[in-house]
Design a binder for these strands. Structure first.
Length: 887
RNA sequence: GGGUAGUUAGCUCAGUGGGAGAGCGUUUGCUUCACAUGCAAAUGGUCGCAGGUUCGACUCCUGUACUACCCACCA
């Protein structure tokens, strides 16, 4: 076994082995219980970032653990075509060559995108492999492949024919840069410092005027009313009057609407229904005209000639000037408000009227709420249930059409005449171009130009990966066997965008939930808690970390901070700690392997034979149960922590140290036994840890196999079985031994006694004989670890000169200091012990003197306190005696 | 405006109705033949603030301050 762990070599080896031997390929097997996860498909544009790494590690941990438990585990890999994001990237590439997509035309452009996809689309999947993800590589799915395409068409046609998909001219969110409509959750809000302009609107046939405040003076050309709150006493008398729009002098009415906030600015709102959501609602309620004044290119339309064709910004500048000159501007005020931005390119979103396809989500939302309320789907942590339900309850229809080229083209066909002009026939939803029009027997059709929102195909993901839409469910064993999947693992950032929609679609098309559990983990942030982004320069690249510290270190660090319901803060120290742990594991294994002797009989059944053996088994059992609970209840951080503590503290710092002295025995049977125990516990721990750190555990497992003639892989069923060996007595006994050792070490440290100086320990036993027996049986360990030469036992001995004192509930230990005694130090040390004990006594006294406590607290609790009190008293007495003796 | 988390050691964070924990940092001692990416020991906290429930609250409840995130119709 090499002195240093070469993680790079090991990672390449095992990654290749797992993939080539299809260790994680899973087939339909009705005799085994499935455990299924579908990966949240990353965009083809993506490179592995820390968020992916975190998400993937958690899924891999679950899959690998369930495999150890004997499940037929399946983790389906896949990628998303990432509509707008991908199109933007390819357009950027074209731009470098001075081209636009229009130069190429739709078909040629799409060819380019597919070409680009075939070059770079595998990047992220290869990075998943590097991460050690136990995905089934025979099942790579893509949201634009044939299966998904069929699924998209099938679902669209179903929804269209049921009247749930409809086309309508509505106010939508429009991104000029991406030149497409966006759904409500595809926009992000950001605070912006801007101005609030107070504009005068003269009242017709009067010298008076009303003042409306606006952040968008350029939209006054689209004003079709002025609104006040009906309960606003200041303005009630104005309702119904006519005012003139500045500059154009167009006549509009003053109306009343409850939505107007009396306390904001003047309490008077100018209503621009074509470019503002609230105004649009007001217009609907009051049947106002809607005038478009901004085109989908971002230029002014339907405005006075001098404004026609200007950009929004230019128009604003010009209009503020003009209002000012005409005396229509009362005043201007600094104003901070949040503005909508595109989630793909951060361009300001404009609201404008546009003809789009919408999905009516009303009924689907009711069902999606129901399955969470009745427990068919559980969220972990449960606190996400409330926001999920609240979101669905207030959900508006989903704008599903996008004016881009890359994506699933809407399977709607329009009947046209010879000149490609649409006839009056209703549009037809169809898998392929229809042969004949239902309505007029026409034979010419054109397909709708728009494509579907990327998230439409994502919503079908749990079905489409199992060929729903392509293969009807009757003979589709995969779909029957693997659907619904077991758990969906994702960050809360796409709970609405993705999770809610999968649930809606699953219920609509499969009449069943797509998964029974949703594991919602935190978002990866930097040390200060900020989102990682290229522009902030705070990105920690997982690939760099893998190269620097190893993949297992990355994985352990991520698992270690995966605390349920909390965002995770990443810093370099995390990986350092994890790297050190990897090193520790390697070296502990090396210690074990180096102690292997050829004539060991490794087939014998291992039996604990000493307290230390019982103890480590008990500790392991406790750890095993806690780790299992952590894996099963989505508290991965706790599992990681428990293994870390057990392995480092219990196994390495205590058990291996105990073993060292036993290894010196002349008796080969003893050496053999110790080796077998060490190997057994090590293997059990490795297996328990393998879901988090698959590479090093597999590597060591393999090395150990050579020594014990085994060929099994680590991912096969658990070696360890929980028996009734969680013995509390064992822990207590062991604690006595550990306390003695620790106490003597502390004494040494406090009195500056070099470890080379061997000391004598004289035990004065105060009570229990059984404890004497325990100490006698484990004398060797005390001697070895506390560097004691000689241990003697007495009953009621006098004080021992030139010695320091350690007092516990069971005994006094006089450590003969062999000339190192410093009376002053020892006095100070003992006095401090008394001080601390007296402090404890004080708090205990408060309780014991409280009659209510004695009367109401559980009897066991009172007893516990009483015992503690007696122990402390005894300790103080003994130390006081010693102090007198010192004087 | 509504909602959800958080506030514990110098830093990053676990945790529990009955004696405050880890990692990193700091201090001290140690090259002991698995590991200095290590071993041993020590230092360090009014558990945000104010009330309440309880024999007992860091833990449960209410209020409050601050921070973060999400949602919303910030003209």
């Amino acid at each position: 076994m090499e002195k240093k762990y070469d993680f790079k070599k090991s990672e390449i080896k095992w990654q290749k082995y797992w993939v080539e031997n299809k260790i994680f390929s899973t087939r339909y097997n009705e005799n085994k219980k499935p455990f299924v996860i579908i990966v949240p498909p990353p965009n083809i544009t993506g490179h592995l970032h820390m968020g992916h790494a975190f998400n993937s590690v958690l899924q891999d941990v679950l899959i690998r653990f369930k495999k150890l438990q004997g499940y037929n585990t399946l983790w389906v890999p896949g990628i998303d075509h990432g509509g707008i994001a991908t199109q933007n990237i390819v357009e950027k590439i074209l731009k470098k060559d001075g081209m636009t997509k229009y130069n190429l035309g739709r078909e040629e452009f799409l060819k380019k995108v597919w070409q680009w996809k075939s070059c770079t689309g595998d990047t992220i999947l290869n990075q998943f492999k590097k991460l050690g993800c136990s995905l089934d590589w025979d099942r790579i799915a893509f949201t634009m492949d044939e299966n998904c395409s069929k699924a998209v068409k099938k679902s669209f046609i179903h929804l269209f024919n049921n009247g749930l998909i409809y086309k309508g001219k509505r106010l939508v969110n429009w991104c000029f840069k991406c030149s497409t409509a966006l759904s409500d959750i595809e926009i992000e809000y950001e605070n912006e410092r801007s101005s609030l302009w107070y504009v005068k609107y003269p009242i017709k046939n009067s010298k008076e005027y009303v003042v409306a405040a606006t952040t968008r003076p350029e939209t006054i050309f689209g004003d079709t009313a002025i609104a006040v709150n009906p309960s606003d006493k200041r303005y009630v008398k104005l309702i119904g009057k006519t005012v003139l729009v500045p500059i154009t002098n167009k006549e509009i009415k003053i109306i009343s609407d409850y939505i107007v906030d009396k306390s904001f600015a003047t309490g008077i709102v100018k209503v621009t229904p074509a470019h503002d959501a609230v105004d649009n609602d007001i217009a609907k309620r009051n049947k106002l005209d809607i005038i478009d004044i901004i085109s989908i290119n971002g230029t002014m339309i339907n405005v006075p000639q001098r404004y026609q064709g200007l950009s929004i910004a230019k128009a604003r500048e010009k209009i503020v000037d003009e209002l000012n000159t005409r005396g229509s501007l009362l005043r201007t005020q600094i104003h901070v408000h949040s503005i909508a931005k595109c989630y793909r390119c951060s361009t300001k979103i404009e609201h404008l009227m546009s003809e789009q396809w919408f999905l009516n989500v009303e009924k689907m939302s009711v069902k999606a709420i129901e399955v969470v309320n009745n427990g068919m789907i559980s969220f972990h942590p449960n606190s996400w249930k409330k926001p999920y339900i609240a979101w669905l309850k207030s959900l508006k229809d989903w704008c599903i059409s996008r004016q881009i080229w890359w994506g699933h083209r809407i399977p709607i066909y329009y009947c046209v005449d010879e000149n490609n002009n649409k006839k009056n026939c209703k549009p037809i939803a169809s898998f392929d171009k229809p042969i004949k029009c239902f309505y007029c027997n026409g034979e010419n059709f054109i397909q709708d130009n728009d494509v579907l929102d990327t998230w439409f195909s994502s919503a079908l993901w749990p079905m489409s990966v199992f060929n729903w839409g392509k293969n009807d469910s009757k003979d589709n064993n995969d779909l029957k066997y693997f659907y619904p999947t077991s758990v969906l693992v994702t960050g809360h950032d796409i709970l609405y965008l993705w999770v809610a929609r999968m649930i809606q679609f699953g219920l609509e098309f499969m009449n069943d939930v797509p998964f029974t559990d949703v594991f919602i983990h935190g978002i990866v942030r930097d040390k200060q808690g900020k989102k990682m982004s290229k522009s902030s320069g705070n990105v920690i690249d997982p690939v760099t970390i893998m190269e620097q510290y190893g993949t297992d270190a990355l994985r352990f660090a991520l698992a270690h901070i995966a605390i349920p319901g909390r965002d995770v803060h990443i810093s370099d120290e995390l990986f350092l700690t994890a790297r050190n742990f990897v090193n520790k594991i390697w070296n502990a294994a090396r210690f074990v392997v180096l102690n292997f002797e050829k004539n060991y009989n490794v087939d014998i059944n291992i039996q604990p034979c000493e307290l230390v053996d019982d103890w480590i088994l008990t500790e392991f059992t406790n750890t095993f149960l806690k780790v299992k609970t952590g894996y099963e209840c989505y508290n991965i951080a706790n599992s990681a922590k428990e293994i870390y503590d057990f392995f480092w503290i219990k196994y390495c710092n205590w058990y291996v140290e105990f073993s060292k002295i036993r290894m010196l025995s002349a008796n080969i049977k003893i050496r053999e036994h110790v080796f077998l125990m060490l190997v057994y516990i090590l293997r059990c721990t490795l297996q328990l840890l393998s879901p988090i750190m698959p590479f090093i555990t597999e590597e060591i497992w393999c090395i150990l196999n050579e020594n014990i003639n085994s060929t099994k892989m680590i991912s096969e069923n658990f070696l360890f079985e929980v028996k009734n060996n969680t013995n509390k007595e064992t822990i207590k006994k062991m604690k006595i031994i550990q306390d003695i050792i620790t106490n003597i070490r502390t004494l040494r440290s406090e009195m500056n006694i070099p470890s080379a100086v061997k000391l004598n320990a004289m035990f004065n036993m105060l009570k229990d004989n059984q404890i004497t027996a325990v100490i006698r049986e484990n004398e060797n360990y005390i001697k070895y670890l506390a560097k004691i030469d000689k241990i003697q036992f007495y009953k009621n001995i006098d004080k021992v000169k030139n010695s320091a004192l350690i007092v516990t509930e069971h005994f006094e230990i006089f450590i003969y200091l062999n000339g190192f005694v410093n009376i002053e130090i020892e006095k100070a040390r003992l006095e401090k012990k008394i001080f601390l004990a007296e402090q404890d006594i004080e708090t205990i006294n408060l309780k014991l003197n409280n009659r209510d406590f004695i009367k109401r607290a559980p009897h066991t609790e009172v007893q516990k306190i009483q015992i503690k009190f007696n122990e402390l008293k005894l300790k103080i007495n003994k130390i006081n005696e010693a102090l007198k003796f010192l004087k």
